[in-house]
Amino acid sequence: MPRYLVVLSRGVAAIALFAMMVLTFVDVIGRYAFNAPVFGVAEMIQFLLAISIFAAMSLASANRGHITVDVLEPALDRVARRPRRLFVRALSILTFALIAAQLGELAYEAWRTDRTTIVLDWPLAGILCACALLALVAFVVELSGYREPDAADGPPEDA
């Protein structure tokens, strides 16, 4: 189950980022070559960014790509390996749960008050709902402890 969720999030994240790249490119070409920029492109990119980030949360989790400090870890592991790991994992799970819950609450609030976006006038609740669901997927993946079998091909994950 978590594997399929990761595959799904992966697809969503990849498509959203691809769309972001193409959209900025087409917008610039349209603006300079045809004097016809895409209307509301900045807002579309904002939504794609949000969607891609929450979709990729579960990837980052499954790739173990999150950034840690790991100083006392080895030393602590000698005395209290299991409790430490459980505690650290519990905090991660709690964080993902909080993010999903917060987004869910904001989505509900946007739906209740019928909010629309500033430029394109799209219903905000739809976008927020998608974000909340993707964050929920990340929470489930984190909870399941699922890790991608091979996440090593490519540069390590940090800036």
């Binding site: 992966r10 994240a13 990849a14 498509i15 959203a16 980022l17 691809f18 891609s52 980030i53 979709a55 990729a56 949360m57 990837l59 980052a60 790739n63 790509g65 999150h66 950034i67 490519g154 540069p155 994950e157 940090d158 800036a159």
Partner: peptide, 11 residues
């Protein structure tokens, strides 16, 4: 694309 987003999400 997924690799780039995975890095981005961690950030």
């Amino acid at each position: 694309l997924a690799e780039a987003m995975s890095t981005t999400a961690a950030l």
